[in-house]
């Protein structure tokens, strides 16, 4: 999985692409957290997952982990661009209740 980001006018957009599973979550968690730590001045954060071709429930756990971290700083989190396959897993988990669609 690849992680890129853009911080413009207080909106941090994190672009996730590739496949998000146990393996990808394990190797990218530190990078993900570092970029969030570096941008805690953001007013809101958007996880743009339009580039994710696959995500299972490990990905849900990883996104919730990052949400909890940002919530501690009062930063709202949104999700954008889920593909049909990824969307099914997100809806099943109820993730949109805490991270609305952007």
């Amino acid at each position: 999985m690849e992680i890129k980001y853009k911080n413009s006018s207080g909106v941090l957009i994190v672009y996730l692409s590739g496949e998000l599973d146990e393996y990808a979550a394990g190797i990218s968690r530190t990078v993900f957290d570092k970029l969030l730590d570096d941008n805690l001045n953001a007013k809101k954060v958007v996880f743009d997952i339009s580039g994710l071709s696959f995500m299972d429930s490990t990905g849900i756990g990883m996104l919730i982990g990052r949400y909890k971290k940002l919530k501690n700083f009062g930063i709202p989190v949104f999700i954008a661009g889920a593909s049909n396959g990824v969307e099914k897993v997100i809806e099943l988990s109820g993730l949109y209740h805490i991270m609305p669609k952007y």
């Binding site: 299972d56 429930s57 490990t58 756990g61 919730i64 099914k88 897993v89 099943l92 988990s93």
Partner: peptide
């Protein structure tokens, strides 16, 4: 470990 606990639910749904 940030586990969602959704594994079996996903299998049963899909």
């Amino acid at each position: 470990e940030e586990r969602s606990g959704m594994g079996f639910t996903v299998m049963q749904t899909f």
